Deep mutational scan, measured.
Amino acid sequence: TFELKGKVGKVVKIAEDHYLVESEGDKWIAYSDEKLSLGDRVMVVDVDGLKLKVKRIP
């Protein structure tokens, strides 16, 4: 299986209740415990079905 946990991506869209993150050339629906901005670099900390939980990284 394709393992996304630990992968790095970038926030490419902000929606009302989720983010769109591009990682490894694909776009994924993501959510975070912190507020993210367009262009933020993020790391995948968990995968919930087809949704990614991400956190901001420097």
Rank of each mutant, 00 (worst) to 15 (best):
T1E: 15
T1F: 15
T1K: 15
T1W: 15
T1H: 15
F2H: 15
F2V: 15
F2Y: 02
F2I: 15
F2W: 02
E3L: 01
E3N: 01
E3H: 02
E3T: 00
E3K: 01
L4E: 15
L4G: 15
L4K: 14
L4R: 02
K5H: 14
K5E: 15
K5M: 15
K5C: 15
K5L: 15
K5A: 15
K5N: 15
K5T: 14
G6V: 01
G6L: 01
G6S: 01
G6M: 01
G6F: 02
G6R: 00
G6Q: 01
K7Q: 10
K7H: 08
K7V: 06
K7C: 14
V8H: 04
V8S: 04
G9Y: 01
G9E: 01
G9L: 12
G9F: 07
G9W: 02
K10R: 11
K10G: 09
K10T: 09
K10M: 08
K10A: 11
K10P: 03
V11I: 07
V11K: 00
V11G: 00
V11W: 01
V11Y: 00
V11S: 00
V11N: 00
V11F: 00
V11L: 06
V12C: 07
V12W: 04
V12H: 06
V12P: 00
V12N: 05
V12R: 06
K13F: 07
K13C: 13
K13T: 10
K13E: 11
K13W: 07
K13S: 11
I14N: 08
I14T: 11
I14C: 13
I14K: 10
I14M: 12
I14G: 06
A15I: 08
A15S: 08
A15P: 05
A15M: 10
A15G: 11
A15E: 06
A15C: 12
E16W: 09
E16H: 09
E16L: 08
E16A: 11
D17W: 07
D17K: 10
H18R: 09
H18L: 13
H18A: 10
H18S: 09
H18E: 12
Y19V: 11
Y19D: 01
Y19K: 01
L20E: 07
L20A: 08
L20Q: 07
L20W: 07
L20P: 00
V21P: 01
V21R: 01
V21H: 01
V21L: 06
V21Y: 06
E22M: 06
E22P: 00
E22T: 07
S23L: 15
S23D: 04
S23Q: 05
S23M: 15
S23A: 15
S23W: 01
S23E: 04
E24W: 03
E24T: 04
E24Y: 03
E24D: 05
E24R: 01
E24M: 05
G25W: 03
G25S: 04
G25Y: 04
G25K: 03
G25V: 04
G25H: 04
D26W: 13
D26C: 13
K27M: 11
K27P: 04
W28A: 02
W28K: 01
W28P: 00
W28H: 13
I29Q: 09
I29V: 10
I29S: 07
I29Y: 14
A30L: 01
A30F: 01
Y31C: 14
Y31E: 14
Y31G: 11
Y31M: 14
Y31D: 14
S32P: 03
S32H: 03
S32L: 02
S32I: 05
S32G: 12
D33Q: 08
D33F: 08
D33P: 10
D33V: 07
D33H: 08
D33I: 10
D33W: 10
D33K: 09
E34Y: 05
E34F: 04
E34D: 11
K35S: 08
K35V: 09
K35T: 10
K35E: 10
K35R: 08
K35H: 12
L36T: 01
L36M: 07
L36W: 01
S37Q: 09
S37V: 11
S37A: 13
S37P: 03
S37I: 11
S37W: 07
S37D: 10
L38Q: 08
L38V: 08
G39I: 04
G39H: 09
G39Y: 11
G39M: 09
D40H: 07
D40C: 11
R41E: 14
R41C: 14
R41F: 13
R41M: 12
V42S: 01
V42Q: 00
V42L: 02
M43P: 00
M43Q: 04
M43V: 14
M43G: 03
M43T: 11
M43F: 08
M43E: 14
M43R: 02
V44K: 00
V44W: 03
V44N: 02
V44M: 02
V44C: 12
V44Q: 01
V44S: 02
V45A: 03
V45I: 10
V45Q: 04
V45S: 04
V45W: 05
D46W: 04
D46R: 02
D46T: 03
D46N: 03
V47W: 06
V47Q: 06
V47M: 07
V47K: 02
V47D: 03
D48T: 08
D48Y: 12
D48V: 07
G49S: 06
G49Q: 06
G49F: 08
G49I: 07
L50T: 07
L50S: 07
L50C: 13
K51P: 02
K51S: 13
K51H: 13
L52G: 02
L52R: 01
L52E: 02
L52Y: 02
L52Q: 02
L52V: 08
K53N: 09
K53C: 11
K53W: 08
K53G: 11
V54K: 00
V54H: 01
V54A: 02
V54Y: 01
K55L: 12
K55A: 13
K55D: 14
K55Y: 04
K55C: 14
R56E: 06
R56P: 12
R56G: 11
R56Q: 09
R56W: 13
I57W: 12
I57R: 03
I57P: 05
I57E: 14
I57N: 08
P58S: 06
P58K: 04
P58L: 05
P58G: 05
P58E: 08
